[in-house]
Design a protein around this nucleic acid. Structure first.
Lengths: 120, 120
DNA sequence: ACAATATGAAACCATTTGGTTGTATATATT
DNA sequence: AATATATACAACCAAATGGTTTCATATTGT
């Protein structure tokens, strides 16, 4: 199923509720397929396929340890999603509210933002 | 195709590249189906279906004006996506990367960020 | 060595998806 | 009134998706 042509991107990978649930389950822990499967009613094979898709999208990585394959969350590709989102944020938010959030949630520093026009 | 049972959620709606492109085209403007279609090689019917899906996910709204149906971006449901994302942010997060997007996605201005430490 | 466990992989299947074409209907335009 | 335009809707289709079952293989544990 996993073709080298990277058939699945992040957008497709997270479109499926089962796969989102798998990601949630993997937050923090590194788990073998069987343990992940135990959270669902569907078969191990089905979950393995979902893991392949998530793996293609680089949202998880698997390492084989003994007879188990341990899967781990790899959240970096979500950055792409975040960037995509940020483009639309200005339409329901105000761009500066993003900055506001950063400032407010920043524990140990103060952030100053100066916006200046740039000539054509 | 469009069942009242809301078959499509935001995650599924944005999974398709054509639909993401439609959203991008609709940023700012309100456009009739035919105008939207002119950006693609596929048929108007195909685009109409995509618009139905986007409509189910409440990412666009359409109003009929004369013989045209004008569609408009409705970005609010993307908030759900943002919230979903925020849960995973802590796992790769470098807070300043948020600022980086703001800077990079800003067309006509330059943003300077000065971060200074604050005494405990 | 043998049985149990964990995964991999192939074959198969029903449904969904993403597209098409064809026809009908409503609204402008001349 | 007749024609052109814009959309709606139904039927159809191939390919993708999300699942299953079955069998093979590698690794433990006794």
């Amino acid at each position: 199923m996993a073709n080298s042509a990277e058939k699945y991107d992040v957008f497709q990978a997270i479109a499926d509720p089962t796969r989102r649930e798998v990601l949630r389950i993997l937050t923090g822990k590194e788990l073998p397929i069987s343990k992940i499967t135990s959270h669902f009613t569907m078969s191990r094979t089905a979950i393995a396929k979902h893991l392949h898709i998530l793996s293609e999208a680089k949202l998880v990585s698997g390492r084989k340890v003994g007879r188990e394959k341990l899967y781990q969350l790899q959240p970096e590709p979500l950055e792409e999603l975040k960037q995509w989102l940020s483009f639309y944020e200005q339409f329901w938010n105000n761009k500066l509210s993003i900055l506001k959030h950063v400032v407010e949630s920043d524990g140990g520093s103060r952030i100053h933002v100066i916006k200046t026009e740039v000539e054509k």
